[in-house]
C-alpha cells in the first residue's frame, strides 16, 4: 500500500516535471510554430537567477516564482527582437539560430559563473509514508504544474488577450486585418514562453546541481514532448507529458533510471511512427 502510494506520487511528479519542462517550449511552438532550441538554456538561466537572488538574501519563493520568470522573459524579449523575428516562418532556420543562441548562453554563463556546480537546498522538508521517505518538494512541483496548466487554459480561454492570441495562432493574416499586429503578439508570446521556461528552470533548480550545460538535459525531453504532443497547445502538452511520464517512471522503478530514460525515448519514436502529427493530430482535434 505504502509502496503503491509512493509510486503513484512519483509518477505524478514525473508527469508534472515534464509539463514544467515543456510548457515554455509548447507555448512558443503552439503559437508561433517556432522551435526554440535555446529553451534548455533559458531554464538554466532561470536556475542561476534564482540561486543568485537567494544568495543576495531574497526569499526563495519570490526568487523562483517572480524574479526568475521576469528576468528570463526579458532575456527572451531581447532575443526575439534581435534574432528570431527575422526568421518567422522558417522552421529549420529558427531551430538552427536558437541552437546557436544556446551555445552562446552556455558560453556567457560559463564566463560569469564558471564551470562549477552550484545549487540551493530544497525549501520544503521531506516526510515519510510508512517506511518510505518522500521529498516534500515534489508536491510543490506537482502543484505548480497543475496551477500552470489551469492558468494557461484560463488565460487563453477566458481573457481578451487569450482570444487575440488564439486568433493569431489560427490566422495571423486575419488578425492583422482586424487591427492586431502579429508582430507585437508574437513578441508578447515569446516573452511569456521564455518566462515559463525561466519559471521551470527556477522551480527545478533546487533538485539539481546547476552547471552552465544543464540545459542540454532538458531540451531533448522538452522538444520530444512538444513535438509528440502535436498541434494543440494544452491538450498536447498534458497528454504527451502523461504518456511519457508514466512510461519513463514505470521503467525507472521496474528496471533502472537509465532504462526509464531510454524507455521514454523509445516511446517517443514509436509514438511518432504511429501518430506522425503528434497525439493531438489524431485525438482531441481542434481542442486547445
Amino acid at each position: 500500500m505504502d509502496l503503491s502510494a509512493v509510486i503513484f506520487i512519483e509518477i505524478l511528479y514525473a508527469v508534472a516535471s515534464l509539463i514544467m519542462i515543456s510548457a515554455g517550449l509548447a507555448v512558443v511552438f503552439g503559437m508561433m510554430k517556432v522551435i526554440n532550441l535555446a529553451h534548455g538554456e533559458f531554464m538554466m538561466m532561470g536556475g542561476y537567477t534564482t540561486i543568485t537572488a537567494v544568495n543576495l538574501g531574497v526569499n526563495v519563493f519570490v526568487a523562483m516564482l517572480i524574479i526568475a520568470p521576469l528576468i528570463v522573459g526579458l532575456i527572451g524579449l531581447v532575443v526575439e527582437r534581435l534574432v528570431i523575428r527575422h526568421l518567422y516562418g522558417r522552421l529549420i532556420d529558427t531551430m538552427l539560430a536558437t541552437w546557436g543562441l544556446s551555445l552562446f548562453f552556455i558560453g556567457i554563463v560559463t564566463m560569469i559563473f564558471g564551470n562549477t556546480t552550484t545549487g540551493i537546498s530544497t525549501p520544503i522538508p521531506g516526510f515519510t509514508v510508512g517506511n518510505y521517505q518522500i521529498n516534500g518538494y515534489n508536491f510543490f512541483i506537482i502543484l505548480v504544474a497543475i496551477a500552470l496548466v489551469i492558468l494557461l487554459y484560463a488565460v487563453l480561454k477566458g481573457t481578451r488577450a487569450g482570444l487575440i492570441a488564439r486568433g493569431t495562432m489560427q490566422r495571423p493574416d486575419m488578425a492583422a486585418s482586424l487591427g492586431y499586429s502579429p508582430d507585437r503578439i508574437y513578441m508578447a508570446t515569446f516573452f511569456c514562453g521564455s518566462a515559463l521556461s525561466g519559471l521551470a528552470g527556477a522551480v527545478l533548480a533546487p533538485l539539481v546541481g546547476l552547471v552552465p550545460t544543464s540545459g542540454a538535459a532538458y531540451i531533448a525531453k522538452a522538444f520530444i514532448t512538444v513535438i509528440a504532443g502535436g498541434p494543440s497547445l494544452i491538450a498536447g502538452l498534458v497528454s504527451s507529458s502523461t504518456v511519457f511520464g508514466i512510461i519513463s517512471q514505470t521503467f525507472s522503478f521496474a528496471v533502472s533510471p537509465v532504462m526509464g530514460e531510454v524507455a521514454l525515448l523509445v516511446a517517443a519514436v514509436v509514438l511518432l511512427r504511429l501518430l506522425p502529427q503528434g497525439v493531438t493530430g489524431k485525438f482531441f482535434k481542434g481542442k486547445l
Binding site: 534574432v83 527575422h86 526568421l87 532556420d93 538552427l96 539560430a97 541552437w99 546557436g100 543562441l101 544556446s102 551555445l103 552562446f104 548562453f105 552556455i106 558560453g107 556567457i108 560559463t110 564566463m111
Partner: peptide, 19 residues
C-alpha cells in the same frame, strides 16, 4: 573568451546573414 560562445555567435550570424 569561452569557446562555445564564439561557435554560438558564428552560427547565429550565419543563419541570419548568410543562410
Amino acid at each position: 573568451v569561452d569557446n562555445t560562445l564564439i561557435m554560438g555567435i558564428i552560427l547565429v550570424v550565419f543563419v541570419l546573414f548568410l543562410p
